[in-house]
């Protein structure tokens, strides 16, 4: 049986030489966490099942910094590496694959031009394309939306792009399912309501998407403790849980989180 994966996420600011890992709170304030390839190495040694690098300052000239980070990381880190941020065509995707990435994550560029998902998956396979969705709860119900029941009442989920700075009007659950039909092999699902809040994953959101698509769903946003991971694995079919702050700031090591989960019956790789 496939193990549930624990994935640390490195939000990278590539605007400084060599890049640096930062962490935002509710998509806003920024806190410095470390050097990307060093942190990746540390998480690998500590038992990360995969590592996600997101270039939050994505722009063409900074992609070179990201590819050099990936090249450096892949020399001593032997788990899958996923890279996202500003990949808006097959050529930039090729650059990161050639640097040693196993998967790329698409967000804004796929919302703007959904065919990009097919263009990359046709060439590199569905397993290499992760669709990232930043979803925000909307309690004003509208016709044609996927309505999800939550403790705060029924809502739908709206996709945001440009790193949470703009909204699209697109229904996140419908988008997840369309992206899979276009060739996305995995969904990285971030709750904007929970991201950086330390309130735990958005369970109704994760459940709604995981039930809708037949590809792995990575739950993201809001994780502050192993209990939150336990909750998302017990209450949803999420294949993986992604977190940043909990690992960056030394609150919990990946190994400790995994031991905690295993002791409580979750199938994880130790």
């Amino acid at each position: 049986m496939l193990a549930r994966r624990i994935i640390p996420c490195l939000d990278c600011d590539m605007g400084v030489p060599g890049g640096r890992v930062v962490k935002g709170i509710e998509f806003q304030q920024i806190r410095y966490a470390g050097v990307p390839w060093e942190l990746a190495g540390q998480y690998y040694e500590d038992g990360a099942d995969e590592i996600v690098f997101l270039d939050i300052t994505a722009s063409h000239e900074r992609r070179e910094t990201m590819t050099s980070v990936i090249k450096k990381t892949s020399r001593s880190v032997f788990v899958p590496l996923a890279v996202g941020g500003g990949i808006n065509g097959v050529e930039p995707a090729r650059e990161v694959f050639n640097a040693g990435a196993d998967k790329i994550t698409l967000n804004t560029s796929a919302l703007k031009r959904p065919e990009l998902i097919s263009e990359i998956s046709d060439r590199y396979g569905n397993q290499a394309v992760v669709l990232a969705i930043d979803a925000k709860r909307r309690y004003t119900l509208e016709e044609g939306r996927h309505i999800v029941q939550t403790e705060q009442g029924p809502c739908w989920f709206e996709c945001s792009f440009y790193g949470g700075r703009q909204f699209t009007g697109i229904d996140a659950i419908a988008w997840a399912s369309r992206a899979v039909s276009l060739g996305a092999g995995e969904i990285l699902l971030t709750s904007m309501d929970r991201d950086g809040t330390y309130d735990g994953f958005d369970i109704p959101l994760t459940n709604a998407v995981a039930k809708r698509v037949n590809v792995p769903v990575i739950a993201s946003g809001g994780c502050a403790s192993p209990d939150h991971m336990l909750e998302v694995f017990k209450k949803t079919d999420a294949s993986a849980a992604l977190a940043a702050s909990i690992f960056h700031f030394g609150e919990w090591s990946i190994r400790n989180v995994k031991t905690y989960l295993k002791e409580r019956g979750v199938n994880v790789r130790i």
């Binding site: 049986m1 496939l2 193990a3 099942d49 397993q127 092999g185 037949n214 590809v215 792995p216 294949s239």
Partner: peptide
Amino acid sequence: VMIPQMGWNS
């Protein structure tokens, strides 16, 4: 089952 099988298995 989920296809592709993608992830860690024993």
